[in-house]
Computed example of a mutant assay.
Amino acid sequence: MSAITITILLSIFPFFIAGISQMLSISGYGRGFGLEEIFQHYFTWYLFLIAFMYKSMERNDEIKRLPSVFDFARFSLSTGERHPRILAFKWKGKSLDVRQVETLVEPGLFFFIGLFLMLIGQSLGTLLFFSSIFYSLSYMAAYMIGDHFVMDKIDEMICNEEMVGSFVEGRDPSETRGFSFYGRKPTDPETRRRLADAFTEDFEETVLAR
């Protein structure tokens, strides 16, 4: 969805809410509100949309100047460069890592801005409040997926390095960095060794294929 489409939809949204409110008031449920109430509660909403469109056009011009992803010059899913002021943020005199910045500092800033705007009756506050929560959760999920990806690769390496000790020699997990083989094993040690070699070969072929 383009920035223009989002801006149009968000511009219409207050009038949509006002229309529903008027319909409910006609039916005897609550009190409708008109243009004065829209301006009162959505003033910062439209200021935000102006800023949003400006930054979107600025970002679009920036993207046009970047190297093409088809020339392997840039990662296609790049989220852009982080603002130096955000990275310079310190907590109790300590610098924060990128993970803390993306999951806590960035969304936290808009969380509190949204909370403040909600308290003074600005509907933009609700948008920023919930958007910041989902922003934080999305990055937490992304980092969690990355963590599991790395752990899976580490486990694969440990599995291959300790396969002989566990599968062939029958060592205790305390001697194989916690790795243990689950399943029946051939009684002949030499057969177990050949199988262990086959396991390792299959893993190496899979890695090369990737």
Rank of each mutant, 00 (worst) to 15 (best):
S2F: 13
H148E: 14
T44N: 02
E175P: 02
R184D: 12
G178A: 11
V164G: 03
T44I: 08
K185T: 02
D188I: 02
M140I: 12
K90A: 09
S27R: 01
S56M: 04
L117F: 12
G121C: 06
K64P: 01
M157V: 08
A3Q: 03
G183L: 11
F199Q: 03
A73R: 15
V150G: 01
E169F: 05
R85D: 08
R171V: 00
M1I: 09
G108S: 11
F130M: 11
F48E: 04
L87V: 12
K94F: 07
F39T: 09
K64R: 10
I145L: 10
P107V: 03
V168N: 03
G34I: 00
E62G: 02
G125H: 01
F134V: 10
Q122D: 11
K153G: 02
G30S: 07
E190F: 06
M23N: 05
D197I: 03
F116M: 01
D147P: 01
S11Y: 05
E161H: 07
M151P: 00
E205T: 07
I4Y: 08
F13D: 02
S78N: 12
K90C: 08
V164E: 12
E169Q: 15
L117E: 05
A142I: 09
V105N: 08
E62A: 15
M140L: 13
F13S: 13
R177P: 00
L124V: 09
A51D: 05
S76H: 12
P67D: 06
P67E: 06
S68C: 06
M53K: 04
A209V: 00
L127V: 12
L127S: 07
D97R: 03
L137N: 07
H41N: 10
E190Y: 04
S136E: 03
F72L: 08
G121T: 05
A142G: 14
S11D: 00
D147C: 02
S56N: 06
F15A: 10
H83V: 09
S166M: 02
D147S: 08
A196H: 07
R65S: 09
P67G: 04
F16H: 01
W91F: 15
M57Q: 09
D197L: 04
S25G: 04
S78V: 03
A141N: 05
L35Y: 12
A18I: 06
V69E: 10
P107T: 04
G165V: 01
E175I: 08
E37Q: 12
T191V: 15
K153M: 13
I120T: 15
F134M: 11
E102T: 03
P173A: 04
I120P: 08
F43W: 12
S95R: 13
P189T: 14
A3L: 02
N60G: 02
A88H: 07
V69K: 09
A141E: 07
I145F: 09
E106S: 11
R177S: 14
Y143I: 00
F43I: 07
T79Y: 04
L104S: 09
G125P: 00
G183R: 05
D61G: 02
G146D: 14
A51F: 12
R82N: 14
F15G: 01
E201R: 11
S123I: 05
S136W: 01
G28S: 04
E162V: 01
M140Y: 10
S132R: 09
F72N: 13
R193E: 11
E175A: 09
F149K: 07
R210T: 14
I4M: 05
M157E: 14
I8C: 04
K55V: 11
K55Q: 08
L208D: 14
